[in-house]
Amino acid sequence: MAEIMLELNEINTFYGKAHILHDLSFKVAAGEVVALLGRNGAGKTTTMRTIMQLARPQSGTVQFEGNDITRWATHKVAQAGIGYVPEERRIFGDLTVMENLEVGRQPVRDGLPAWTVEHLFELFPNLAERRDNRGKQMSGGEQQMLTIARTLMGNPKLLLLDEPSEGIAPVIVEQMAQTLLEIKAKGLTVLLSEQNLHFARIVADRAIIIEGGGAVFDSTFEDLETHPEIRDQYLSV
């Protein structure tokens, strides 16, 4: 296995009194695309937020490239090279497409592709046409592309994608899968959370299923197929 990029170690995260993540541990290797699967409320978003330190774990550690980033300020985590695409997209509605991209801009990191606005417009042609439109004037699919593009402007090493296919037309989901494969080809490591198993299969190398805030399955998709009872137990609605 290649070098470990991200490692969660017995993470426990609470929202107020609600215990969301229970001793959650998993690893992501450099260059890997890992899908975090699980039902609504299983703890996928909280996992993402914990990695970004937007939710502070009560115990356990998050390691990124060998550094313990637990309790770092969120902007430091982002500056270290973790790009976060949140579930609700959260584009800046009053800012134009160009301005949204500007907010995401970070210095280039060594040994990684430097994303420029031009590159991103090649990857997401729709955005180029709408560069001077305000974020709130765009459709859901366009907003999702803008969020991903905005995060890529930070030249991240690791991309966290929280349910990228949620609430988006099936045609766009196909397109998005292609885009993610292109991003992967550039050498980015990706951790994405998904409920759409079909979408996850296309882009991810490995599946981690979480249920009740803990990892219950961590293996390849082939493995998952040979255990339909796991899929039925943890993923079917």
Binding site: T74, A78, Y84, F92, V103, Q106
Partner: peptide, 10 residues
């Protein structure tokens, strides 16, 4: 508009 998102972008 969204402080948390700004921090998440570094």
């Amino acid at each position: 508009l969204d402080r948390e998102m700004v921090a998440s972008l570094g």
